[in-house]
Nucleic acid binder design. Structure first.
Lengths: 190, 190
DNA sequence: ATAATTTCTTAATCTAGGTTAAGTGTCTTT
DNA sequence: AAAGACACTTAACCTAGATTAAGAAATTAT
């Protein structure tokens, strides 16, 4: 089971603990385009992707979308700010490709932290890794050209390139779809 | 004591635990310009700032510096990637203004995690808050102009503006010192 | 104090990437 | 299979911010 494999990357659970964990989660199927979380809402769940693709993004001045992150098979996604503070966030979470998702509510997560303290370590490590990745991306945005960022993206998320519309990738990289298209055809010509 | 106040923001320690914690740390004075960590080295400590100012930054192609973060009184700083992975990082950590620093070695941190499991929660929360802050900064870099980012910076880090050379702030915001200077005088004229 | 280094400013010129707009291709939905 | 609705491309023109350079101001070291 994908999510148990995921947990086992950082902690070891007994069969009973595994069963308890699963009993506190819920599996659901979602069609592409479904919005799991709207900006302005309080985020109540963490989402683990069994299959399909999700993204988180915000909308600027009611016009421009900016992709914060993608999540495909084996990845967690949520609005960390809203989930932690339990205040309204400004992220949307949306299904990009039909998906099967494991839902873990904040409440159940807290219950599980009491029952299986090891899980606190698991989520700490998850958060640490995410922080490191975000720091690197920040520095990349400060120091690399769009072309260099795209190359890094291709190496890191090879599978995503086929799956998500390229305007979403442009948004993640911080350029317009028009510029992205121009850049891509320029890179292909080499 | 500043560092105990800092711990008490998220967890409650008994006097014995406080004493144990302090016994595993070390306090040192550093002059401005001192380098605490070089790129290419393995980061062995977390640094807590009692007084003074530090920054972390990397150097691109041996030429351009990019500031990842500042830390002044009451803030923690380190190279999270290197500290966690125990591999050589690419961040420098430098004193910008004469500083008194509390050093916590990775080894002692692990010992303390065993002896005072609550501390694991403390650092988890610290990491969570840092992640949220980095996510917001990422989105700001994608969607705001340099001027807007500077205004946000001024509101958030009012005390820093007097203390650090403005070329460092320019670097943090992701613009050149020349452009920053032009932008600043334009903003003053309003 | 003075010299040396570093930081800041100003200005001319340049460019990566944005904007606008129009056309084409490709999914969805019915 | 047709009609919309998206997604992608191309091209002309525009702008925020970069680069280069040179001088002024402020720190730091001797």
């Amino acid at each position: 089971m994908l999510i148990l494999d995921n947990l086992s990357k950082h902690i070891t659970l007994t069969p009973q603990e595994q069963e308890l964990f699963l009993s506190k989660t819920e599996i659901r199927q979602y069609k592409a385009k479904t919005i799991l979380l709207n900006a302005g809402e309080i985020c109540t769940h963490s989402y683990f992707v069994n299959s399909g693709v999700l993204r988180s993004f915000n909308i600027n001045d009611n016009i421009v979308e900016h992709v914060l992150s993608f999540a495909c098979s084996g990845w967690w996604i949520s609005d960390m700010y809203s989930l932690l503070s339990q205040k309204p966030g400004n992220l949307f979470i949306q299904v990009l490709e039909d998906a099967e998702i494991v839902l873990l509510s904040k409440k159940n997560q807290e219950v599980l932290f009491q029952e299986i303290p090891k899980l606190e370590r698991f989520f700490r490590i998850l958060t640490e890794n995410s922080l490191v990745a975000h720091q690197e991306r920040l520095m990349d945005n400060l120091s690399l050209t769009a072309e260099e960022r795209f190359e890094k993206f291709c190496n890191k998320y090879q599978d995503l390139i086929q799956k998500v519309p390229q305007k979403q990738i442009a948004s993640y990289l911080g350029v317009t779809p028009e510029f992205f298209s121009k850049m891509k055809s320029k890179m292909l010509r080499k």
